[in-house]
Amino acid sequence: MSLIQEVSSFLTHEADLLDQGNFEAWLELYEDDALYWVPSSPEQTDMKGQVSIMLEDVPLLKLRVRRLSHPRAYAVTPKPATIHLIGNINASEEDSLVMVSSKLIMTQVRDNVATSLSGAVTHHLKRSEGGFGIKLKRVDLIEAGGTFSAISVPL
C-alpha cells in the first residue's frame, strides 16, 4: 500500500467512528500525549494568548466523550446524525512522523435542522503496531472568526 492509501484508510476509519457515535473507540486512535486543536482564527499559532474553539489534551477529550454519553447532555439529546467527509488527502513521512493534510466537510442533522462546517485538517501521525496513532489533529474551519451555532460533536 502507498503512504496515501494507508493514511486515507486511517482517516476514513476515524471519520466512520465519529459518524457511528463510537467516541470511545475514536479516542483510542489518539496517543496519550496527543493534542486536539480547532483554532479560532486562520494561521493561529498561539495556543495560550488567543482563544481556541477547542484545545484539548487526552484527559479533556475523555471528559468530553464521557459527557456526550450522559443522558442529560441536552445539547446532544437527541443525538445529531453526522457525516464527516474527508478528501484532498496529502501525506509525507518525516523522521518518525507522518504529516497529513486533508479537507473535511462535516454535515450535521438534528431535529430536522442541517448545519455544516468545513475546514482544512492537519494530522500528525505516529506509526504504531496496529497502524497509526494521532499525535496532533488540527482543524482550521473556514467559518473561523464568524458566528457559530453550538458545536456539539467532535470534528
Binding site: 484527559p59 471528559l63 464521557r66 459527557r67 450522559h70
Partner: peptide, 30 residues
C-alpha cells in the same frame, strides 16, 4: 440541572496530567 452532564463528567474525570496540560488547560476546565 442544565449543567449536570458537565458537572458529573468533570467529577468522574480521571486525574492525571499530560505533558500538554501546561499548554492547554492547567487544570482550569475541570
Amino acid at each position: 440541572y442544565v449543567h449536570e452532564s458537565s458537572v458529573t463528567s468533570a467529577r468522574q474525570a480521571e486525574g492525571g496530567v499530560t505533558p500538554q496540560d501546561e499548554l492547554v488547560d492547567r487544570g482550569q476546565t475541570k
